[in-house]
Write a protein that binds this DNA or RNA. Sequence first.
DNA 1: TTATAAACGAGACGGTACGTCAAGTCTTGCT
DNA 2: AGCAAGACTTGACGTACCGTCTCGTTTATAA
Lengths: 195, 195, 195, 195
Amino acid sequence: MTELTRPLSPRSARAHATALAAARALLGEGGLPAATVDAISLRSGVSKATLYKHWPSRTALAAEAFGREMADALPLPSTGDPRADLVEQVRQVSAFYAGAKGEVFAQLLAACVTDPSAAPYFREFFLDGRRAAISVLWQRLVESGLASPTVDAETATDLLFGPLIFRRLTGHAPLTFAEADAISSAALEGLLKRE
Amino acid sequence: MTELTRPLSPRSARAHATALAAARALLGEGGLPAATVDAISLRSGVSKATLYKHWPSRTALAAEAFGREMADALPLPSTGDPRADLVEQVRQVSAFYAGAKGEVFAQLLAACVTDPSAAPYFREFFLDGRRAAISVLWQRLVESGLASPTVDAETATDLLFGPLIFRRLTGHAPLTFAEADAISSAALEGLLKRE
Amino acid sequence: MTELTRPLSPRSARAHATALAAARALLGEGGLPAATVDAISLRSGVSKATLYKHWPSRTALAAEAFGREMADALPLPSTGDPRADLVEQVRQVSAFYAGAKGEVFAQLLAACVTDPSAAPYFREFFLDGRRAAISVLWQRLVESGLASPTVDAETATDLLFGPLIFRRLTGHAPLTFAEADAISSAALEGLLKRE
Amino acid sequence: MTELTRPLSPRSARAHATALAAARALLGEGGLPAATVDAISLRSGVSKATLYKHWPSRTALAAEAFGREMADALPLPSTGDPRADLVEQVRQVSAFYAGAKGEVFAQLLAACVTDPSAAPYFREFFLDGRRAAISVLWQRLVESGLASPTVDAETATDLLFGPLIFRRLTGHAPLTFAEADAISSAALEGLLKRE
DNA sequence: TTATAAACGAGACGGTACGTCAAGTCTTGCT
DNA sequence: AGCAAGACTTGACGTACCGTCTCGTTTATAA
């Protein structure tokens, strides 16, 4: 448990949860631009003052809402073939980025650049989750002897997803499965051990 | 010549250039947040109305100003060793991202997510330049037989810089030379031919 | 001939007339707000620079256009009965003020408050014409011995039309024939000689 | 109490009053042109957004400020002689129109033509007050048997002040006491009963 | 007929103010 | 006490129209 997830009084917990639900709904309807503080307050019935007692900024609130929603949306593949699992995960994630949720992801990532107070929330509730998932897959590869233990999961994650995210942000190239495969295979060639 | 760089009357050209200079200065002083439309107008003496005739939004203006400034700031290494050149370029770029200019880069990249009208300007005046530079280096590698012609420069660029940019945006990991080397060597392992 | 109506070269005269025609049309379509300098220039093909060589301001141009149009629109009644003629004139004018043209009149009168350079044009091309018409009627009354020569036509005009215009501007009371009659009869009672 | 004068929370009332005071001061210094929204906001410390929550437009704000200021500035004469009182009132009002405040009055009247949203404010806070004052005087005349009850105070007011205001707006004739007397006596001749 | 100077057409520019928006803070009153 | 309601400040945005200016072209008149 971190500083961002301390226990709350029942009343506070209710306000907290209600606000998150409203934010999630608004994010789904119109992305981050729709998740206005006033809109969240209005829909949830939680006052603005209370919102700012729970989160340092609107972006932080949205980041937590988004992160919690995504927590279960991207299940870990587990076919037994570690390499295939990782490739599959990259494909899934690239599909995610290409879709509507990917748009929200991009908006949040962008917003965190401007609003540093939100970054910890985005990391805590979204990025760390993704990263942990990859760590598991990576660990399996290392244990299978396919990947070198000298490359840490951090670097592997960045190599596998950084390119996809970069494309998503700049929109200079499409995010198809083919592209995802090209990237993941190239990256994995570099990451995995030679025979 | 694209649509964004059509020839202008002398008078317009003057206003255009003056505005860009003011924007560049403001970006240098306080990053994107300082490059307000009013501030640019005030400092350059170019009226707001004129600014909005030349650019669709403040972000587009800033993107062009930033891109033009960076055009020469990142020279191509040319030591004769294609692989070393590419590695050196990655190191330089990672240093760039880690510095003050990298902050502005991140702000612009983020702003383009929110403001789609600015994205073409950012691509035209910054990203494409960077991408072209890498293409040259990549071409040398292909010609040297070190890299496979089946991997295009686009993919290579994304693989080499996507991870760095991702780190810069989320701030989850530092952008040191060591990190840059780890990433570039891992990526290159996958990209380059095995002997 | 006043300073405002000096002879022009054929070319200039053409531009002058074309601009006035365009202004008149625009006034008819959307009132003074529609008679933008750009709109007049665009529709007439007369450049803005030329417009400002002929008139000191957009309002002056519009005032002249309006005044010339109205010159013949309000014919003098001439039934032989001077008193009836005057009453009829007041009724006609009140009907005019109540209509669409009256709206434009009000807009021009208002604009001249803000833009003093236009006032002479409004007087020259509109007000003086109206005032002259009343003078004729008033003169007939005086000659008929119905009105005292000690009251000048100026005062009579103001008394007869001031109230109507005041109502038109503030909109606090309607401008019906009944109202016009009430005002004119009351005013005339004071202006005309007793039996 | 009308819709324009509903009760406000203490906080809002403070902002409302402060804004009006600033507007009044600015009107006094530079007339309506000086009563810019930004200027009022700056001087009063009330933000523009708040101003636009309280009033539909800058003109409406200025109209209310002006009207409230004038409320006590033009006291009712009460000499016991109803006719003399009315003449005196006309003289006072004509002096008012001829002065600096009259300039502001003309500007506001003109502005209300362009900005219909402001007209109710000008009526509510200025014109109705003036009109009520005249009604009192007129009532006294009627009660004294000097004026006919068939002429309503509305018409009398328009007849007495319309001409003055018309002169003030067009500037075609001066607004001296002599002129005012000529107008008022002529008008009253028509309005008052013959013995 | 041709030169040439004035006037024009096209349209960009500087300036000023407008009215709007969302973020984040603060007050007021209810529970 | 603590929260809902909501008004307030701040800062920037993008727009509209005015009147001025530049530049290249047309037109009228005199050589």
